[in-house]
Nucleic acid binder design. Structure first.
Length: 879
RNA sequence: GGGCGGGUAGCUCAGCUGGCAGAGCACCUGGAUCACAACCAGGGGGUCACAGGUUCAAGUCCUGUUCCGCCCACCA
């Protein structure tokens, strides 16, 4: 055992100084490296942040949770691995670099594909991955030698391999469909990359003339500009109003194109006029209708959302400008029947918020239903569990209604689709096929098509590596519920498809951090505090602890910077408690102290019992992912029990003239419990706990690899807890009497206790510890039952406490206090009496509940009687 | 249109198996006591959103109402 360093814990506690030194220490000692052992390893991986990303408070919350579990598991003796890494983030990264080019007046096309990619890599090497570097400052115990990037060489092969495997299995196909298109990013998007925002718009009622008649058919639309591409009007086959029109021909206004009127089941007769314009090239629904009826697809817009040659007079107009002009033109020509206000859920690009455009194009898709089925089963069977559990429903609902996944992106930055063309030939191959003249597909894959492989691609897959064998499946995934579809569900599908096993057993969803007004923290709102600044101001330990302490499972958190003080103050408290203990250890060699030789006092047994309880609570709450409760239990124990009571009671026992054997016991217990607190604290506050632990007598090279405490059964002691509880109440009662009666804090008082012999014995036993706690000069036990004449008094568990301070107390104040106290008791007493006179209660309530009420009644009556006597004795007295 | 979460002290939120409503912050009173003023001691503060129901007993379970917030959804 090492002796510790009495010079190390200087006043005041300075997180900056403490937090600088331990990360290099841990890395040098290889603390974060997995250390093979017999049991199942605990494996966790980072949800790879975008390479363009910057650190947010949200990241810190996720990291805190991951690192708490990881450090705890490591201390439990399990082999642990945390794989860090980054995501190439196709659109986001390409956008960043393109913007930089634009600032120089260039576009990616000026550079060409190869040079542009060189530019992106250069950018990545220079600016990318700042987040990961900052995480070291935060203390996370990741294994940096295994850091991965979703576009690094091995990972890329895994992605291409996946594409080929799914293609060969018939689960990837190419098709011409309406997809979500971002006219700004100029790429297709998956359904998940489209956010819907309710937008106030209009419902325009357009009159289409019926050929060879003077009649019109009126259609309602929210997108009048697409009428230029209409190739039919549809009505419900069940709609008798329009039955006669089916089969006739309408004349498209402005374009003068003749279009058929068809009957189709997708039309809801109750909506609008019951007649719908059909634009197969610009609406997913109409596309299907068009296919059912063999309608032509007239494309009237280009990839920028600008009207093309098919739009006649409106050619060259932006889609929104075209909308205005089309409405104006229809109005002028008398084809606009009416306009109604209407709320439309407009789809927006997840990345740039540009309204998406349904766009007809050739794209690659993954057939999802066959992949979803095993993922549904896995959740139903409990092979993957969600915390909070309610997300299982969200997950299942999505998978059960899953649609095919559009995975091709018209970008340059990403994994290029491994499909090759030569004339009419097509080959799907990870590497360029042999022979001349092969041309690779121009598109790249959706970023998530690489992320969904993360849990095994980071371990060397598709190679059957040792890492893969040992560390797959991972144990726990900690991430935000906002990417449950993007990522979590898809990882489960990929894991099952390619490894035949779920990628992780548990998924824990972190809280969402919001600002004081309840808005989600985001870069654009600039309402997120700078995490680095927070670490500097409060310390990384404090940020970690506070975030965990403040976020209940499954609940959002309204974050206010000030609340980081919780952790900072707590760290300071532990620091100072450690200083106190250390100062009082003297030159005692605690390693030589045999536990059996200790003479444990009531206070010692009490704190050991409470400590065992704290160990149990913290551990139980960690196991069930109630991290805030775990932090809470520790905070409460360390501060309100160890510091506020035990250390105060131990102080006199440390005095120079104290009994040496008792002093040793007090030293040993305080050191032992503090050591335990540091161990429990370590996952939450790794730096300060390590610093203190190293400064105290300790065994082993690092707290990070020290053993997690066990709650010793022998330490639980309910009777001791009950007895100390009585003494605490007694001390509080005296303090309260002093305060209420305005006894100067510096002034010592005389206290007389009157009660059962057992109670008096107890008070006598701990008198030396009680006296300083309440500043009592003389503590008299009224074994003869005598009560002082004029005194302030209180009743504690049936025992009476008197402050016989004639002339010192204000009798009016004391009388008032007693009246108030009596009133409170009378109310309680009535309630209890009511219960006990209820025959149903007596018959049906659990016997122990009834018994408790009975005892309560007795005690209340006793206490009340004593308060009455106290009042009477003050009655005649003069203040 | 479906689904989910929430409404508890002035604020932010705990409250697990139904059994005397809690914490932190803020507020009030007092305090430089040799671990800590980033502290200590004491205190005030509640119709647990509302209405029913189940139960001996409801913040907790059930039903309905209401207000906030999320998620999903191809009725143009």
């Amino acid at each position: 055992m090492q002796r510790g360093d009495p010079e190390a814990l200087q006043q005041p506690y300075d997180p900056g100084r403490v937090e600088g030194r331990w990360y290099p220490f841990w890395e040098e000692h290889g603390v974060f490296r997995p250390r093979a052992d017999a049991g199942r390893p605990f494996v966790i991986s980072i949800p790879p942040p975008n390479v363009t990303g910057s650190l947010t408070m949200g990241h810190l919350l996720g990291e805190s949770v991951r690192d708490v579990v990881l450090r705890w598991q490591r201390m439990e003796g399990r082999e642990t691995l945390y794989v860090p890494g980054m995501d190439h983030a196709g659109i986001a990264t390409q956008n960043v670099v393109e913007k930089k080019l634009r600032d120089d007046g260039k576009s990616r096309h000026d550079l060409g594909r190869e040079d542009f990619l060189r530019e992106v890599w250069a950018w990545k090497d220079q600016y990318g991955g700042l987040i990961l570097r900052q995480l070291r400052r935060f203390g996370i115990s990741a294994e940096w030698s295994r850091e991965r990037f979703t576009l690094d060489e091995g990972y890329s092969r895994a992605v291409l391999h996946t594409f080929k495997a799914l293609y060969d299995k018939g689960l990837i196909y190419r098709g011409r469909y309406i997809v979500n298109w971002c006219p700004r990013c100029l790429t297709a998007l998956s359904d998940e990359e489209v956010d819907h925002a309710d937008t106030s718009g209009h419902l325009w009622y357009l009159k289409y003339p019926i050929k060879d008649s003077k009649q019109f058919v009126t259609v309602a639309t929210t997108r009048p500009e697409t009428m230029l591409g209409d190739t039919a009007v549809a009505v419900s086959p069940k709609d008798r109003r329009y039955a006669k029109l089916v089969g006739r021909t309408a004349v498209l206004p402005l374009m003068r194109r003749e279009i058929p009127i068809v009957a189709d089941g997708m039309v809801d007769p109750k909506f609008g006029t019951g007649a719908v314009k059909v634009t197969p090239a610009h609406d997913p629904n109409d596309f299907l209708t068009g296919q059912r009826h063999g309608l032509p697809e007239v494309v009237v817009m280009d990839e920028h959302g600008v009207m093309n040659d098919n739009a006649g007079d409106f050619r060259g107009l932006d889609r929104f400008e075209a909308r205005k002009r089309v409405v104006a033109a229809l109005t002028d020509a008398g084809y606009l029947e009416k306009t109604e206000p209407y709320t439309v859920p407009v789809g927006q690009c997840h990345r740039c918020h540009t309204p998406i455009e349904p766009y007809l194009s050739w794209q690659w898709f993954v057939k999802m239903a066959p992949l979803a089925a095993p993922a549904i089963e896995a959740a139903k069977k409990g092979q993957v569990k969600f915390y909070p559990a309610r997300y299982k429903k969200v997950y299942l609902n999505w998978l059960e209604n899953i649609r095919d996944w559009c995975i091709s992106r018209q970008l340059w930055w990403g994994h290029r689709i491994p499909v090759w063309y030569r004339g009419e030939e097509m080959a799907v191959s990870v590497d360029r096929p042999a022979g001349e003249g092969w041309r690779q597909d121009e598109d790249v894959l959706d970023t998530w098509f690489s992320s969904w492989l993360w849990p095994f691609a980071i371990l060397g897959w598709p190679g059957e590596t040792d890492d893969l064998k040992r560390f797959y499946p991972n144990s726990l995934m900690v991430t935000g519920a906002d990417i449950i579809f993007f990522w979590v569900a898809r990882m489960v599908m990929a894991g099952l498809e390619f490894r035949g096993e779920v990628p992780f057993q548990h998924v824990y969803f972190t809280s969402i951090l919001r600002d004081a007004q309840g808005r989600k923290m985001s870069k654009s709102l600039r309402n997120s505090p700078d995490p680095i600044e927070m670490m500097e101001r409060y310390g990384a330990d404090a940020v970690r602890f506070s975030l965990i302490y403040l976020t209940p499972t499954g609940q959002d958190l309204l974050f206010d910077e000030k609340r980081l003080e919780t952790g900072k103050f707590f760290a300071n408290k532990v620091w100072n408690a450690a200083r106190l203990v250390q100062m009082r250890l003297g030159d005692e060699d605690l390693a030589k102290v045999r536990e059996s030789s200790l003479r444990l006092t009531l206070a010692d047994r009490w704190i050991l019992s409470r400590y065992a309880d704290a160990v149990k609570n913290v551990t139980r709450n960690l196991k069930t992912y109630r991290f805030n409760e775990a932090a809470n239990a520790l905070y409460q124990f360390a501060w309100a029990e160890f510091c506020d009571w035990y250390l105060e009671m131990a102080k006199p026992r440390w005095a120079d003239d104290a009994d040496p054997a008792d002093r040793t016991t007090a030293r040993w217990v305080s050191w032992k419990v503090l050591d335990g607190i540091l161990r429990l604290l370590h996952p939450f506050m790794p730096f300060v706990s390590e610093e203190i632990w190293q400064a105290m007598p300790h065994d082993g090279e690092s707290l990070a690899t020290a053993a997690w405490p066990r709650a010793r059964k022998a330490w639980f002691d309910a009777e001791t807890e009950r007895q100390v509880g009585f003494l605490q109440e007694l001390v509080v009662a005296v303090r309260n009497l002093r305060a209420e009666n305005k006894v100067a804090p510096g002034r010592t008082v005389t206290v007389i206790v009157r009660g059962e012999p057992a109670q008096l014995d107890l008070v006598e036993k701990l008198a030396e510890q009680i006296r300083p706690l309440a500043r009592i000069e003389s503590l008299t036990l009224a074994r003869d039952g005598a009560r002082p004449k004029v005194a302030a008094s209180a009743v504690v568990q049936g025992a009476e406490v008197f402050l016989p301070l004639e002339g010192l107390i204000d009798l009016d104040v004391e009388r008032e206090r007693l009246v108030k106290e009596t009133d409170r008791l009378v109310r309680d007493l009535e309630g209890t009496r009511r219960k006990l006179s209820n025959s149903d209660f007596l018959a049906k309530a659990k016997p122990e509940v009834v018994e408790r009420e009975r005892q309560r009644l007795v005690q209340l009556e006793e206490t009340l009687a004593k308060l009455k006597r106290a009042q009477e004795s003050l009655h005649g007295a003069k203040g």
